[in-house]
Write a protein that binds this DNA or RNA. Sequence first.
DNA 1: CATCATCCTTGACTTAAATCAATAATAGAA
DNA 2: TTCTATTATTGATTTAAGTCAAGGATGATG
Lengths: 227, 227
Amino acid sequence: MDIRLFLKNIDLFKDIPEEQITKLAEMTQLSNYEKGERIFYEGDHADGFFVVHSGRVKIFKLSGEGKEQILHVMEPGDPFGEVPMFAGGRYPADAETVEPSLLLFFSRKAFTDVISREPSLAMSMMASLSRRLLHLTTLIENLSLKEVPERLASYLLYLHDRDKIADIDLRISKGQLANILGTSPETLSRTLGRMSSRGIIKVLGRNIRLLDPEAMKEIATGLRFKG
Amino acid sequence: MDIRLFLKNIDLFKDIPEEQITKLAEMTQLSNYEKGERIFYEGDHADGFFVVHSGRVKIFKLSGEGKEQILHVMEPGDPFGEVPMFAGGRYPADAETVEPSLLLFFSRKAFTDVISREPSLAMSMMASLSRRLLHLTTLIENLSLKEVPERLASYLLYLHDRDKIADIDLRISKGQLANILGTSPETLSRTLGRMSSRGIIKVLGRNIRLLDPEAMKEIATGLRFKG
DNA sequence: CATCATCCTTGACTTAAATCAATAATAGAA
DNA sequence: TTCTATTATTGATTTAAGTCAAGGATGATG
């Protein structure tokens, strides 16, 4: 069956034997979400966690004035919303789809049942949580110690390196990218503009063509880019 | 023995039976550190993790220009440096004592040996990692969505609430506090000065007397504090 | 208790980036 | 396609906070 095959191939469950996969597949709840639909709010009580089957989900913080900081953009195979299962009981941030998505939900019970039989699931979960800590650590470094051009350059190089294609596909709107980088759409637009006018990139809608990777690396490491 | 008693009482090991505690105690390496001593550098390879026995340890990021952002200040009973055991293999940040400290070190092997016999240790570790994610999420919220007076107010209220005493003991230098809040010592000094001149606090060295908690709560929630 | 070094404060100035505002471009729906 | 709504750009201005610099307080140590 489709869901079993999907579960077998995601990082979190990759070391789990067939019969436990079957059990997980049986206990999964599937839900379809439209683009822009809320999955949970900060402070909601939680009794399980999600895995993205298809689509994309942003995890974000909102300020009182409505300003948004994106913490993660979750993609197919990524688990999210597990933190309250282990600590606090409530979501520490909001979650919303950024495109139509199919999500799997696992109850706390389904998870603990399998973990008691398969300790390797605990190791996978610890690895997953650790990768998230790594990611948030990098985000803090960017927000606190780097300026906007550095953050943008790091992000573009990260995507370029990850996807290994010349034209970087942002896959999200520039407004959302501004929220990931912790800046405003105006500042992002101006920074992209400056990079373009220096011949470092060419902006093609949601694609960025990297013309001068060396110059971009210099910006990313803080060898700056003034005026 | 002393170490066994200590281990039994920390969160991470609180559900572990006596004989496994004994095993952990035997496999622990103890090290004394002076104030300001490096424990590890970002990028160092890691094959185990630490627990603070006494003293205090800061975990921080450094920028190329030497600016520092503190991620955590670890206190007695807190584990740190486990992330590379599960993901990446290298420390994502630097660690240094902020006062003379006694640290315990557990090898990866000691940890995995015990976890294979005591799955509850995995649950404790997942809880610990989740609390850290919670903490970093709050830090990002502060850095990205709040201004310095709000961050400072939140931090002071957090300490006040935690210690339940009128005079808040910072326990670290104001320079270090500035690094936790992601600002400069000058800005911190000015902000404390403004709070003092409005009669909200009284600064007594490393202690802050909270005179007007209501006003402080208003600042923390962004009901601002201009000019 | 005197000395040295660290830490803190205050002032003057600079700057990166946010905000406000208006227009332009793009994409999605009918 | 055409219309509408969302998203993006550009310009003018404001602002919070950083930086530089100098003096003052504090605390550790012999």
